[in-house]
């Protein structure tokens, strides 16, 4: 028999904040990858979304501290609050790296065919990881959360392969080299944050994190 608790209202508020953040984070990363591949200046828009995420992340931190101070949560409640703090941070990092991707072209220039394929593939896989990690959190799906870290191995392989390719066979255009390398680097970081997000979700569900055996 479940009974209404004062803490539940606060946990629901945290959950609502995270839902809102997840929506924004997903579209922010997606838009920045698309702009890289297809052109278009979305830096300002992405900046705005990224700032909103940072703002929400602060709100989550404030709310979480309040809940800990007022209700001294334990067990599943405590794990949920810790996970919310971590997940919210990871979502805000998605926004920040998306913003970085959106500024590279303006800062450095050089957006051509050289790294297009790897950015496209890494972008697709990274988006898939973001969606899966968010879905795993929403649906409390431990299995799906673990799959996210498996996908990350492929993203890492693509990243290091691209770096080696650049060394072996660098493009003549240095600007393009830097732009591509930075972009895949940011995508690789975003993918890592998706793994962290999934790991926090797994902790929330089972009390253990994804073991980083790589």
């Amino acid at each position: 028999m479940e009974k209404a608790r004062l803490l539940d209202k606060g946990l629901n508020e945290l959950s609502d904040l995270l839902d809102e953040m997840a929506k924004i984070a997903e579209k922010t990363v997606s838009a920045s990858i698309q702009a890289y591949l297809e052109g278009g200046d979305i830096e300002l828009q992405v900046r705005q979304w990224s700032d909103t995420l940072i703002n929400y992340n602060n709100q989550v931190g404030e709310k979480a501290v309040e809940l800990i101070a007022r209700y001294q949560p334990v067990a599943n409640d405590l794990r949920t609050i810790r996970a919310c703090i971590e997940i919210s941070y990871n979502l805000s990092r998605f926004g920040r790296y998306a913003y970085d991707i959106s500024t590279i072209h303006k800062t450095i220039g050089g957006r051509g065919e050289y790294g297009r394929e790897v950015v496209s593939e890494m972008g697709e896989r990274t988006m898939k990881m973001i969606k899966a990690s968010i879905k795993a959190y929403r649906t409390r799906d431990a299995r799906l959360a673990e799959e996210v870290s498996e996908e990350d191995r492929i993203v890492d392989q693509l990243y290091f392969k691209h770096l080696r390719d650049c060394v072996k066979n660098p493009p003549r255009d240095v600007e393009q080299l830097i732009t591509d390398v930075l972009t895949v680097r940011h995508l690789e970081r975003i993918a890592d944050h998706a793994v962290d997000l999934a790991s926090s979700t797994l902790y929330m569900i089972k009390g253990e994190k994804i073991s980083k055996l790589r």
Binding site: K3, V74, A75, L78, K206
Partner: peptide, 19 residues
């Protein structure tokens, strides 16, 4: 016990979901 209790009954008791 307080971070990750193994029993649902413990979980419900310490999180105040009891009764």
């Amino acid at each position: 016990v307080f971070e990750n209790p193994s029993s649902k009954l413990t979980e419900d008791f310490i999180t105040g979901r009891f009764g």
